[in-house]
């Protein structure tokens, strides 16, 4: 009965989703009028659309070549600070909840190939993660992908070695990275005009040392995401059911 009702509701949902997609406006040129920003107070319309502005002026305004990075760190940096706070809150909640449960559990050893192979591969995974978050303003990537690659490297170690665990000292990295983010933002308030504003010269777009505070903030985010996701996985592994 429950299954039948589920199938009927899911079928109706599927058909209405496909109809919705059929009537969705086809993908536009970014310069079309419908993307234009309308001022809510006096009703005036800007003469360029928001995505078009990002694509045209990212290189000159922020010095970053990758427009996604520029949006995440520079144009919507405050939003990213909020996201990082959500991540921190969730990690704290996980470690609080699981500290109430019983810890410690015997596990059998992994086989030799996994153990030796993961020892061999781990430095390369960490190097790739670091490359991704240092070059966030030049190539695809940045702090969030790089941090998750680093965390998956530690996940490999946890799978291969049952006794491998992250020391509590990892929370130092976490707090240091979060503090660095806020301090860079406050320096923008002091040295420039507003919170998280760029106060370092932009430099030549395309060089490794360019784009002002974007690489600094993305390195901080990379450390924070990496240490927090590793800590979450480690907590889930340590707890006893």
């Amino acid at each position: 009965m429950r299954k039948l009702a589920g199938i009927v509701i899911a079928g109706i949902f599927f058909i209405s989703m496909m109809m919705l997609f059929y009537h969705l406006p086809a993908s536009h040129d970014l310069s079309s009028n419908e993307y234009y920003y309308r001022n809510p107070i006096n009703g005036s319309v800007a003469n360029e659309s928001i995505p078009e502005h990002y694509i045209k002026y990212t290189k000159n305004e922020t010095g970053a070549v990758n427009a996604v990075t520029a949006i995440v760190v520079e144009y919507r940096g405050f939003d990213t600070l909020g996201e990082v706070t959500v991540l921190f809150t969730a990690a704290t909640g996980v470690s609080f909840l699981l500290s109430l449960a019983v810890r410690g559990r015997k596990r059998e050893e992994a086989n030799l190939i996994l153990k030796e192979g993961s020892k061999l591969v781990l430095p390369f995974i960490l190097l790739t993660g670091a490359y991704i978050f240092i070059h966030g303003h030049l190539t695809p990537g940045g702090g969030f992908p790089g941090g998750s690659v680093v965390a998956s490297g530690f996940l490999l170690m946890m799978l291969a070695y049952p006794k491998f665990f992250m020391k509590d000292r990892i929370s130092w990295f976490e707090s240091a990275a979060g503090t660095a983010f806020v301090v860079i933002g406050l320096l923008g308030l002091v040295l420039a005009t507003s919170f998280l504003q760029n106060f370092i010269p932009v430099g030549t777009p395309g060089q490794l040392v360019s784009a002002g505070i974007i690489p600094l903030i993305y390195i901080a985010i990379g450390f924070k995401v990496g240490s927090e996701l590793s800590a979450i996985v480690n907590k889930m592994k340590e707890v006893q059911g």
């Binding site: 695809p140 998750s148 996985v233």
Partner: peptide, 20 residues
């Protein structure tokens, strides 16, 4: 950018968290 994130998080970490 999204592809890198989804590959390492969706296929790696989410699955590991669920399996644990």
């Amino acid at each position: 950018d999204v592809a890198i994130t989804e590959a390492s998080i969706g296929a790696g970490i989410t699955m590991a968290v669920f399996v644990y």
